[in-house]
């Protein structure tokens, strides 16, 4: 079973690489856009802070920005992958594979996750060097990053599930993804006690970004993080979004089969 699952992950990874080969400038343009995007935002913050934009604040923004960037990529790629497949008719062939479609989606998600981690790491290395930042790399930081992104995949699966039934839902993905950048405290911390802060607590990225900033900017150890109630809130939101995504995608498949709308877009 594990061997077969790895075979599917391998097939998805291989297909993703071929897709990148077919659109080589998409990758380059994407990387350049987000690299320059952060430099512009950083410059803007410098002006707003009247030169008091510290290295720690800059690093915190970078951690938030890159965590969001990975989430943004995973969300868009997951949803767009499905809508493209529906449009091309390959979605039905995926359904005809004799595997549980959700298993294939998990395999795809693993590949998409790895792909965006690599992209984000490349941007991170370049920006850290360019801006002269000094991040910490405590043990467990990858795990916290991973949990943060699982919640995002939960959201992606929910959109996919709704999209299978209500065909225009996928159009909302980019708006939602962009909103996450500004309402999760990714760029600048939100003021506690505000409505926006309370809302952000229930969004998939907020708790994770805050913990990652603690670890990477201030070097807080994983042992300390585990003692932080925020960590358990991250697990709770991740679990909630993950389960909700799984359930909604299953529901969407059933309804789409009833409506005969798997191939419609």
């Amino acid at each position: 079973m594990i061997a077969f699952f790895l075979q599917i992950v391998g097939a998805e990874a291989w297909r993703e690489l071929r897709r990148m080969r077919a659109y080589p400038f998409d990758f380059l343009a994407d990387q350049t856009l987000f690299l320059i995007g952060f430099l512009l935002l950083s410059g803007l913050f410098q002006v707003v802070a009247e030169g008091d934009y510290t290295k720690e604040a800059q690093l915190a923004s970078l951690v938030g920005f890159l965590t969001w960037r990975a989430a943004d990529g995973c969300l868009l790629r997951t949803v767009n992958g499905l809508t493209d497949d529906a449009q091309w008719g390959t979605l039905e062939q995926v359904w005809l594979s004799g595997l549980l479609p959700r298993l294939i989606f998990i395999a795809r998600s693993i590949v998409i996750f790895i792909s965006y981690v690599i992209r984000v790491l490349i941007i991170a290395v370049i920006l850290i060097i360019l801006l002269g930042l000094s991040p910490h790399y405590p043990f467990g930081v990858a795990l916290v990053f991973f949990f943060t992104q699982i919640g995002v995949f939960g959201v992606a699966y929910m959109i996919v599930g709704f999209h299978l039934v209500y065909k225009s839902v996928a159009a909302m993905t980019m708006a939602f993804s962009t909103a996450l950048l500004f309402v999760t405290g990714a760029l600048a911390p939100l003021s506690e006690g505000t409505i926006l802060y309370s809302v952000s607590r229930f969004l998939p990225l907020a708790a994770g970004i805050s913990l990652l900033q603690e670890m990477i900017v201030f070097g807080t150890s994983f042992e300390k993080i585990v003692e932080d109630p925020n960590f358990y809130w991250l697990l709770a939101t991740t679990f909630a979004y993950g389960i909700a995504g799984w359930v909604v995608m299953g529901w969407g498949q059933r309804i789409a089969r009833r409506h005969g709308s798997l191939a419609h877009y």
Partner: peptide, 20 residues
């Protein structure tokens, strides 16, 4: 429906769907 990925070659399509 296309049933296939147009940006992949014939062999690549068969490798992908065969794995699936």
């Amino acid at each position: 429906a296309r049933n296939l990925y147009w940006r992949l070659s014939a062999r690549e399509n068969l490798l992908y769907f065969g794995s699936l």
